[in-house]
């Protein structure tokens, strides 16, 4: 595997592979896994925020207008938001290659 500049050598690692900077999960871009992408229909959305609460990756954020969108660097396309939305405002669409 190609070594990028940020990958530490074995000598540079923290003992036991311990992670010392808390809250670093956001650095891991789970968006790479996605094959389906959530698409919001703001005409149907009642802004209840259920999708925001249920997203297991905390990748849904509220827009200035009070609607919701996914941060696609982290959304892994699980479809939970679409399943939970009480107004069926979210559709999962195929990612193009």
């Amino acid at each position: 595997m190609a070594k990028t500049k940020t990958d530490p050598t074995w000598q540079e690692l923290e003992i036991g592979g311990i992670v010392t900077n808390p809250g670093n999960a956001a650095e891991y871009k789970t968006g790479d896994w996605r094959s389906l992408r959530p698409l919001w229909d703001t005409k149907r959305c009642v802004r209840c925020g259920a999708c925001y609460i249920f997203c297991p990756d905390a990748s849904i954020y509220e827009t200035e207008e009070g609607y919701f969108e996914a941060d696609l660097y982290h959304c892994k396309g699980c479809g939970i938001c679409a399943h939970e939305c009480p107004t069926q405002s979210i559709k999962m669409v195929e990612e193009e290659e």
Binding site: M1, D7, P8, T9, W10, L13, G16, G17, I18, V19, T20, P22
Partner: peptide, 14 residues
């Protein structure tokens, strides 16, 4: 700190 974390293939060998 996080102990016993997940190790991606890019880190595991190190």
């Amino acid at each position: 700190v996080t102990m016993g974390a997940f190790g991606m293939p890019s880190m595991f060998s190190e």
